[in-house]
Design a protein around this nucleic acid. Structure first.
Lengths: 170, 170
DNA sequence: TGTTGGTAGTTGGTAGTAGCAACTAATAGT
DNA sequence: ACTATTAGTTGCTACTACCAACTACCAACA
């Protein structure tokens, strides 16, 4: 990427910013739509719903955690998280035990079965993504991932991150 | 995901692609989550749900359309689309009339009220996005939008685009 | 010790999302 | 006219997601 700083002093009305924000908003909206759809198709194929899969993924990525932590991780209300976990427990993908340090809290752990299912799904999704970007050149691939991650970072700081209590101000 | 990879059975030319695809997949997943959350918060504030807003947006962007077309545009089953439109009609944001050319088909049109609501919501969302990317430099902003659009384009061609036929114009 | 305030998680209630299948009505093909 | 197809609706089921009310536990302190 060329990194020029030429346009530093923006005019009073930043019409460029507005337009960029609008384009970005539209692009992200569409991405959300099409990816939700893809996820529904790919994941429902297996034994779990999209949200359930995200929950599984989150617990695997971050290790055993409490329910509130999971809810915050998924930007969900704890009641919703509770039900999602309920489904996963019923299906045998997650184990719900008492936290050793705090009898109120849960320790959510993915079972072996859960890990297995998740790797199968993840393999599928990554495979799909591979097909999608196979003929991007390497720089474009990396740049896309980097920019999206950056946007996620910002977005979660701005209007996510902290649903119930937890605050990790960097 | 899998803790160790890049072992003997992975083709050499593939290993970078695999990693990129995995990163991209994760980034997109997170973007989807955080944006769904943002949308729920921002849009529910008004009188419509997220999907209802997308439907409104789609009809505004593409002009009056049939229900099947809308369903395809939103990657939804026609039954779901039918109910979403039902809500919008009930609330007075969309008008459902018979298609002049085909008495089976509907002509879905956004009412003035609908247009008004949509511009208010869109203004909010774009404003939010502006805050998010205001201190990106211009190149980064544009590059992000461009890369995401490109990804959407690909994705919708690959696993979305035409649920019921390619669009043949009006 | 017992009360009180706060936190973790569950459950009830309501509304919306979403797909499949079965249905009606109109259209097109023969 | 008869049939197959297409557009859209409705019944059904399950899940998502919120708020609010609830139980259970923890911590502090009087």
């Amino acid at each position: 990427m060329s990194s020029k700083q030429g346009k530093r002093d923006a005019p009073v009305k930043d019409s460029g910013l507005y337009k960029d924000a609008r384009d970005l908003n539209r692009a992200v909206s569409e991405l959300v739509r099409v990816y939700q759809f893809r996820d529904r198709k790919s994941i429902f194929y297996y034994d779990v719903s999209v949200t359930q899969c995200y929950a599984l993924s989150s617990i695997i990525t971050h290790g055993p955690m409490t329910l509130n932590r999971l809810a915050s991780e998924l930007y969900l209300d704890k009641s919703t998280a509770s039900r999602v976990v309920g489904s996963l427990v019923r299906k045998g993908y997650v184990r719900r035990s008492a936290d050793p340090g705090d009898a109120r809290a849960l320790r959510l752990e993915v079972t072996g079965k859960g890990t297995g299912l998740h790797s199968k799904i993840a393999r599928d999704l990554v495979e799909e993504m591979k097909n999608l970007v196979a003929d991007y050149d390497v720089d474009t691939r990396r740049a896309t991932a980097r920019l999206i991650s950056r946007l996620v970072q910002r977005a979660s700081e701005r209007f996510g991150g902290n649903i119930s209590g937890e605050d990790e101000g960097t």
